[in-house]
């Protein structure tokens, strides 16, 4: 970390709006870098995978830029990673959207929303906690967040589910497993509740960096 500011790399693979997430994270105290190539990940404390658009073309862009393997190594190493919207869907095995094979960090498949009264699901909807999680610290359960999507992942492991949202049928709107987090909604577009969530994410990142530093120091003293 540079000083006390967690350094967050936002993965740029040609997905549209990086401005909002960049400013959202900066507004809550992050040092943000936009990473369009693997080398830009060096020195980052956490990685954000943003994204709107289609899963298949997103995967093509990630591959073309050589970002898939670095991303895989990042998550395998247990470093903090937050997927947002399409970036959240990509964390799972595969997507029905364009029949794409996706990153496979979490077991499950992304499918079209069923029985949705309107599609795309655009607008502010209620996020209900399935279990308490530090990402939602200080945010009243049932708060509104901003969604823009037509697909949602169905995790194979219920244990990763943090929150659900109802649009015709309930779907999974937040997951967490260790330092890997995923949100179907856009915190950077969700006003105060969203900024609070981003701030909570930074705190988790800072805690993780501290733990690693301590583990590193302990390892160092053992070696010595």
């Amino acid at each position: 970390m540079t000083g006390s500011k967690p350094r967050i790399a936002i993965l740029d693979y040609g997905a549209a709006n990086l401005v909002s997430i960049t400013h959202g994270l900066a507004a809550v105290g992050a040092d943000v870098v936009v990473a369009a190539e693997p080398s830009a990940l060096a020195g980052a404390d956490a990685l954000v995978v943003p994204g709107v658009g289609a899963a298949a073309s997103a995967m093509t862009h990630l591959r073309e830029r050589g970002l898939v393997e670095p991303l895989r190594n990042w998550v395998r190493a247990g470093k903090p990673c937050l997927g947002i919207c399409l970036g959240f869907e990509l964390l799972f095995d595969a997507s029905d959207e364009g029949d794409a094979e996706t990153l496979g960090f979490l077991a499950g498949r992304t499918v079209a929303l069923r029985d949705a009264p309107t599609l795309p699901h655009i607008g502010w909807n209620v996020v209900r906690a399935v279990r308490p999680h530090p990402l939602f610290d200080g945010i009243p359960d049932g708060s509104y967040f901003y969604f823009v999507h037509s697909f949602a992942p169905v995790p194979a492991d219920e244990g990763v589910v943090v929150a659900r949202t109802d649009h015709g049928r309930p779907f999974v709107s937040a997951v967490a497993r260790g330092s890997l987090y995923g949100l179907q909604f856009h915190p950077e577009k969700s006003s105060d509740a969203g900024l609070r969530l981003l701030s909570n994410f930074l705190r988790l990142v800072a805690a993780n960096a501290e733990t690693n530093a301590r583990a590193g120091a302990a390892l160092g003293s053992e070696v010595a």
């Binding site: 401005v19 901003y146 969203g194």
Partner: peptide, 11 residues
């Protein structure tokens, strides 16, 4: 647009 996105965190 750029200036707005940097301070208004709604769509």
């Amino acid at each position: 647009v750029r200036r707005t996105a940097s301070r208004a965190f709604v769509p």
